[in-house]
Amino acid sequence: MRNLLDRELQQLNGEILRMGGLVEESVEQTIIALRELDANLAQSVIAKDDLIDSMESRIEKHCLNLFALQQPLAGDLRLIGASLKMLTDLERIADHASDIAELSLRLVGSPAGTVPADVFVMADKTRKMLRSSLDAFIHQDLEAARQVCDDDDEVDDLFNSLILDRVNAIKADPRKVEVSIDIMFIVKYLERMGDHATNIAEWVTYNVTGQHGHMQHPEQHPERDRLIGEPD
């Protein structure tokens, strides 16, 4: 029964995972491009963004068609609804990977050690969050989803300390202002990627439980907020 819908759902699942795989690849490559200040790799991340965008609109259309033609309910409804929302998060992560690639291009030629080591610690954690959120989706694993949300707190802490670190660097040597601002943007994009991975984990939770609780902890960062305004 409902073989047709089941086939469609499987196909949708496959499409999301393929897109997830591409986004992961972009994130990995953008981190390498930043570490090596590799212009070619950065360019290829930027180029891939168009492909990911078109995948997003294709899958989005597929979801809307399933709503219109299959009128899904209960578990089917949640799966398609969650997929549709996750898509946006995946696409945003890819956008930010491409944003970081563009900043890497600006940093090409700077001396070694320009990008602080903690940026890579943060980047690595963010990449792992994305990986875990996709795993949570594949296995519909609540525990894994929970873990992603916990990891987001660590990423946020790194974000805060890196921003303060840059502020101090600028104060110490105003000639470093431009580079520091680029790095602040990179750090901000990484932090947003973590938030989007958390959203994905939250959609997995919704799909499994029917409840979409925001699991991100409403934290207060008065120092950061004073410096850079409210996070969006």
């Binding site: 029964m1 409902r2 819908l5 899904p72 309910l73 209960a74 578990g75 089917d76």
Partner: peptide, 10 residues
Amino acid sequence: TERYITGRFG
């Protein structure tokens, strides 16, 4: 209920 309303009964 899930099986019935999603058309996966029987």
